[in-house]
Design a protein around this nucleic acid. Structure first.
Lengths: 210, 210
DNA sequence: TTCTGTGAACACGTTCACAGCC
DNA sequence: GGCTGTGAACGTGTTCACAGAA
């Protein structure tokens, strides 16, 4: 069951749409309806789902709950993963609260296991219900919690170093907000969110304007 | 000069690497060096740059300052665009500060023109050096500032409505943090950052783990 | 019939490999 | 010789269009 990356990237959107349908009490749906909700072509949605196996009924459609289970299973949301958030400046602080409120409490799959920062003024303070720990003990924290996923919200100049330490400690997936290309070994997955880049891409499309 | 979307998405990274080189006093670079810094293949970088026109010298490489100008020009960073930030909850507040500190002050192209929220407790407060305005006047604010780009950090359930109003008021590019597919007319560009999705994608790659 | 699942066609993006120019 | 710019090959992703199951 090999799922192409571009399909994987769409699975969370399908999941969200299915959750919405389930909440509305819908029991059955179709590739057309679901595709419309998500904003993709129906054929693409069917192709994507086919990588997870065949779970629809021809002439009828898909069972919402069953398909939701399939998608969540494919994403590996069957048990909670420990997430460590490193860097609790302005952005990291907000991210910690956001992840706690909208990701952890919004469904299964994740648990904010620990918060880590290097600033003595921040260490020991409470954020999102957790006490911020010292970055000097980063490896211990990752090992203690068995964390495999990290959110990186440190300043740009220490991002690579922190990244290296996270990987060495056993982290396999990093969501980085530092505007910098991170080098990681084979098998480690980095997803990068760069606000300046996003705005610049928007500027490109708007560039004909005065 | 038609630039493919995937190339556009990489231009900000090239720009950042070129800025780093310029800061280090490097005057000349090569596709190999630049590609290594950015984390892409040298051939891809040369192909990408070729869409902007030929600005390198065969056998020598690229002039850092000149190439930087070309890339910035292509991205439309020749003048400042007004950005409106809508929604100043936890995340929006941090984004406003971040954009002000790391995007606006980090280079040309953008100006945080206004902050808008619907919560009476937030309206009138000062964030990132600006006073938060009433969302009831959203259209007036966009028109007054001539804003073409917006950052959307509202709750999920009002995101589409706010999006519609932004577009009607003249916004052409939206950076959304709301976990929802936004419907926009032709010619309007939406880029979506969804933290839950990003973590779920990381979970997928880590799904073989216990 | 209706709607899925999928082979086949197509479009897009990336990489190779080398001609062309310094 | 060295490095760019780019045709051509390749690989990936998307869409078409229809056979097949309920």
């Amino acid at each position: 069951m090999n799922v192409p990356p571009s399909t994987v990237a769409r699975l969370p959107r399908y999941m969200r749409a299915l959750e919405d349908l389930a909440e509305r009490g819908e029991q059955q749906t179709s590739s057309g309806e679901l595709a419309e909700l998500v904003g993709v072509q129906a054929a693409q949605l069917r192709r994507d789902l086919s990588y997870l196996g065949s779970h629809g009924v021809r002439g009828v459609g898909y069972d919402v709950q069953n398909l939701l289970s399939q998608v969540m299973g494919a994403l590996g949301l069957t048990h909670d993963r420990a997430v460590v958030i490193v860097g609790l400046g302005n952005l990291g602080h907000a991210l910690a609260n956001y992840v706690q409120a909208y990701v952890v409490d919004g469904g299964p799959g994740f648990r904010v296991a620990a918060l880590v920062d290097a600033d003595p003024a921040v260490i020991g303070t409470e954020v999102a219900g957790l006490v911020v720990e010292d970055a000097a003990h980063l490896e211990d924290v990752v090992a203690r919690e068995g964390a495999t996923i990290a959110v990186l919200a440190t300043p740009r100049d220490v991002a690579q170093e922190v990244c290296d330490r996270l990987v060495a400690a056993g982290v396999r997936g990093i969501l980085s907000f530092a505007p910098r290309a991170l080098q990681v070994p084979e098998g480690v997955d980095v997803r990068s969110v760069d606000l300046a880049s996003e705005l610049q891409i928007l500027a490109f499309h708007d560039r004909r304007r005065p």
